[in-house]
């Protein structure tokens, strides 16, 4: 998998809506939806830094390839 194939992937079932990933995303890529679950609001801005994955307490967001979806 090359870096360019990687993207932010979300498992909404595990998200508890704490908002940590939203707050510490340096590029404002993420938002909480109307159910207070995480969603990608601005994918184009994502720089694949992985700060969200590092700090998600629920393993609900990560950088991966299509196989992980």
């Amino acid at each position: 998998m090359t870096a360019k194939d990687r993207k932010v992937i979300i498992n909404k079932d595990w998200c508890k809506g704490c908002g940590i990933c939203v707050a510490f995303c340096p590029k404002n890529v993420l938002a909480l939806d109307h159910h207070d679950k995480i969603e990608v609001a601005n994918r184009d801005a994502c720089i694949l830094c992985g700060q969200c994955e590092l700090r998600c307490p629920d393993f609900a967001i990560w950088l991966g390839g299509e196989a992980d979806e």
Partner: peptide, 28 residues
């Protein structure tokens, strides 16, 4: 559905975990 790291090292059948929203236990 989870990352490679989680699926390689966690007992996924037991997830999601019992910790409260925003609890940092999952991070550590």
């Amino acid at each position: 559905m989870s990352s490679t790291l989680i699926s390689n090292y966690f007992r996924e059948a037991n997830l999601p975990h019992i910790w409260c929203p925003g609890c940092s236990n999952g991070i550590v």
